[in-house]
């Protein structure tokens, strides 16, 4: 799981062009949106694409999606349980 979290952080930094950040700067349980990383709606669409392309996961339910995108930990747990790639 720790390996997956690290990989996810690297992918997020790359996809969102967070050029001043390294994986160690992102806390596992910090909120991704508003507080924490401060991501916005465009970043959310990037994360959805990242999940599709890298892990074969398509998020379409708003309720589920909001839970998944709470933090790196929630994303990693969901990926581990549902990945097809």
């Amino acid at each position: 799981m720790e390996e997956l979290k690290f990989e996810l952080k690297e992918r997020i930094i790359d996809a969102l062009h967070l050029i001043d950040m390294v994986p160690e700067d992102i806390e596992d349980d910090a909120p991704l949106f508003k507080e924490g990383l401060g991501l916005d709606s465009i970043d959310a669409l990037e994360l959805m694409l990242l999940m599709e392309k890298n892990y074969g996961i398509r998020l379409s339910s708003p309720q589920e999606g909001r839970q998944v995108f709470k933090s790196i930990s929630t994303m990693a747990e969901y990926i581990q349980a549902h990945r097809t790639k």
Binding site: D40, S41, L45, R66
Partner: peptide, 30 residues
């Protein structure tokens, strides 16, 4: 609450049309 983004994402993945205003910001200030 960003719920709409998941609906939008699913619509595009299902091959639907998304109609959006391209002159005013909402959801992101970028």
């Amino acid at each position: 609450d960003m719920s709409w983004l998941f609906t939008l994402n699913a619509a595009l993945a299902d091959g639907e049309i998304v109609n959006i205003h391209a002159d005013r910001s909402f959801g992101s200030p970028k």
